Amino acid sequence: MKKTPSQIFKEITITLLYAIVAATIIRLFVFETMMVPTGSMIPTINIGDRLFIEKITYQAREPEIGEIVVFWTPFRDERAEKMLRTFDKMMDIFSPSEFKGHVKYVKRLVGKEGDVLTLKKVNGKWKLFVNGNIPENLKNVNYEPDGVFKYPNLWKYLDEASRLRDNEQKYRNYLYAIALKEGSELANIIFSIVGGMDPVPYGIPYYEYVDKYIKPNNIKFDDYIWVENGQVYVKIPKGFYFFMGDNSSESLDSRYFGFVPKDAVIGRPILRIWPLNNFGPVQPLPIKE
């Protein structure tokens, strides 16, 4: 029996609805994509790369130290938001409510809850020690002793500065006081992260992260960051990770913004789908000594 136009239209509509539902389920629970806005993972991942992220593995197990992980920023990164393209902004409708308006970062996991981290020079290069040893997967990675490893009070200063950001005069006075006390380099780092006025109008309202994740978990930075014989140590609290970028000198990572809650993890990048001339699996870190 020949189908009427209305029957054909109805079948097409139902098929499309099924397809949309299936695609939504896959997008929510199995795969998604991200565009990399910065060079923090060069040469492993480059600026402008679009990555295909697999979300199942880390639902079955925790990521291991040395693995590349994609996670939601536990704060609003206003500068990165400005760099997102239309497609990425549209995909924000699928984001968990907790991370609406947040962006994705891709970094390498270097510390899990309970781990103690420090940076030491080995044969003239800075290496990350985790619980007294260099993890096998990180032996070929060199890191810069910046951020909290150089300024143990950085996270506290970011919290205080960000709470003053909307009052320009108090904010300027605070940065000036930091410059007198700790040096202009630290004041510039704080301003470059927090932003809030020309020439850095956008930045990270760091106090939101502190109020959402640090204070509710009764975390006091002084309990997790300490100095012994001139060496800075950082301990990872329960329920958190510590991430760092391969391109250490150009990476805004946990050295600067702190601990990342476990529930911010999205998945692992398995495929580079853009640019087409670099299409293929996300390669492991090259061995360079």
Rank of each mutant, 00 (worst) to 15 (best):
residue 178 I to C: 06
residue 66 G to H: 06
residue 114 G to A: 01
residue 172 R to Q: 06
residue 280 G to C: 01
residue 80 A to N: 13
residue 225 I to G: 08
residue 176 Y to K: 15
residue 50 R to E: 13
residue 287 I to E: 13
residue 95 S to W: 09
residue 41 M to P: 03
residue 197 M to K: 00
residue 135 P to W: 09
residue 4 T to F: 09
residue 135 P to Q: 10
residue 180 L to Y: 06
residue 21 V to R: 02
residue 75 F to L: 10
residue 160 E to S: 13
residue 49 D to I: 02
residue 54 E to K: 04
residue 86 T to Y: 10
residue 2 K to S: 10
residue 278 N to Y: 05
residue 176 Y to A: 14
residue 124 G to W: 08
residue 271 L to A: 00
residue 156 K to A: 06
residue 88 D to H: 13
residue 260 V to M: 00
residue 266 I to L: 15
residue 10 K to C: 05
residue 250 E to A: 15
residue 27 R to H: 11
residue 2 K to V: 08
residue 70 V to Q: 00
residue 146 D to Q: 13
residue 249 S to T: 14
residue 102 H to E: 09
residue 97 S to T: 13
residue 190 I to A: 04
residue 217 N to P: 04
residue 260 V to T: 07
residue 196 G to H: 02
residue 78 E to Y: 01
residue 12 I to S: 03
residue 240 F to Q: 06
residue 274 W to R: 11
residue 3 K to Q: 14
residue 127 K to T: 01
residue 257 F to G: 07
residue 155 W to N: 05
residue 143 Y to H: 13
residue 233 Y to D: 02
residue 131 N to D: 11
residue 110 V to K: 09
residue 136 E to P: 04
residue 230 G to M: 05
residue 234 V to N: 08
residue 161 A to R: 07
residue 262 K to F: 00
residue 90 M to I: 15
residue 221 F to D: 00
residue 124 G to K: 11
residue 149 F to I: 12
residue 277 N to D: 12
residue 283 Q to M: 09
residue 21 V to H: 04
residue 2 K to Y: 07
residue 209 Y to H: 12
residue 205 P to Y: 08
residue 116 V to G: 05
residue 286 P to G: 01
residue 88 D to G: 11
residue 160 E to Q: 14
residue 256 Y to V: 06
residue 259 F to C: 07
residue 208 E to S: 09
residue 40 S to Y: 09
residue 202 Y to G: 07
residue 128 L to G: 02
residue 268 R to T: 15
residue 104 K to V: 03
residue 36 V to T: 07
residue 4 T to A: 14
residue 36 V to A: 04
residue 12 I to W: 10
residue 85 R to G: 11
residue 223 D to I: 01
residue 11 E to K: 12
residue 5 P to G: 12
residue 96 P to F: 09
residue 133 N to Y: 15
residue 278 N to L: 06
residue 68 I to W: 00
residue 106 V to F: 04
residue 180 L to H: 06
residue 186 L to F: 08
residue 241 Y to Q: 10
residue 10 K to R: 14
residue 255 R to H: 08
residue 126 W to I: 00
residue 25 I to Q: 05
residue 68 I to K: 06
residue 186 L to G: 08
residue 97 S to D: 13
residue 202 Y to K: 14
residue 136 E to G: 07
residue 206 Y to P: 04
residue 285 L to T: 07
residue 200 V to L: 14
residue 66 G to W: 02
residue 108 R to M: 01
residue 171 Y to C: 03
residue 119 L to M: 15
residue 146 D to E: 12
residue 264 A to H: 05
residue 173 N to F: 02
residue 175 L to C: 05
residue 175 L to Q: 04
residue 223 D to H: 08
residue 275 P to Q: 10
residue 63 P to R: 02
residue 80 A to W: 06
residue 178 I to R: 05
residue 241 Y to H: 15
residue 284 P to Q: 00
residue 208 E to I: 08
residue 24 T to C: 12
residue 165 R to D: 02
residue 55 K to I: 09
residue 27 R to Y: 10
residue 245 G to P: 12
residue 283 Q to V: 07
